[in-house]
């Protein structure tokens, strides 16, 4: 696990942007403090030697589930778009995207 210094405020702000979250100054302070203490806590995993242990991403054995390539009725447009914050034509409106 990381030997670096615990996460600092700048790193917190970087992660916040990566996660698309605005954080106020006060929130940034609190998050820095909380994340530092949580990361210090999880450091206890360093006590274990897991070099040869496989990682578990599914705890229970699962078979591959395959679906036949048969069309199912789609959801009616009005239902799909009913919760949309901004409807433009039959699409979901967003601020103009410039590539």
């Amino acid at each position: 696990m990381s030997k670096e210094a615990p996460i600092d405020r700048a790193a917190v702000l970087h992660v916040a942007k990566l996660a698309r979250l605005t954080v106020s100054d006060a929130e940034a302070d609190a998050l820095t403090r909380d994340m530092q203490s949580i990361l210090a806590y999880v450091k206890k995993l360093d006590e274990l030697d897991v070099a040869k242990v496989p990682a578990t991403s599914h705890a229970v054995h699962l078979e591959t589930l395959l679906r036949p390539d048969e069309p199912r009725p789609c959801m009616p447009l009005e239902k799909v778009i009913a919760n949309s914050p901004e409807r433009i034509g039959d699409g979901f409106g967003v601020p103009k995207i410039i590539e």
């Binding site: 696990m1 897991v50 496989p54 990682a55 705890a59």
Partner: peptide
């Protein structure tokens, strides 16, 4: 360091 390590300890 974090995610993979945690998934390994999960195995244990």
């Amino acid at each position: 360091a974090y995610y993979v390590k945690a998934q390994k300890v999960r195995t244990l």
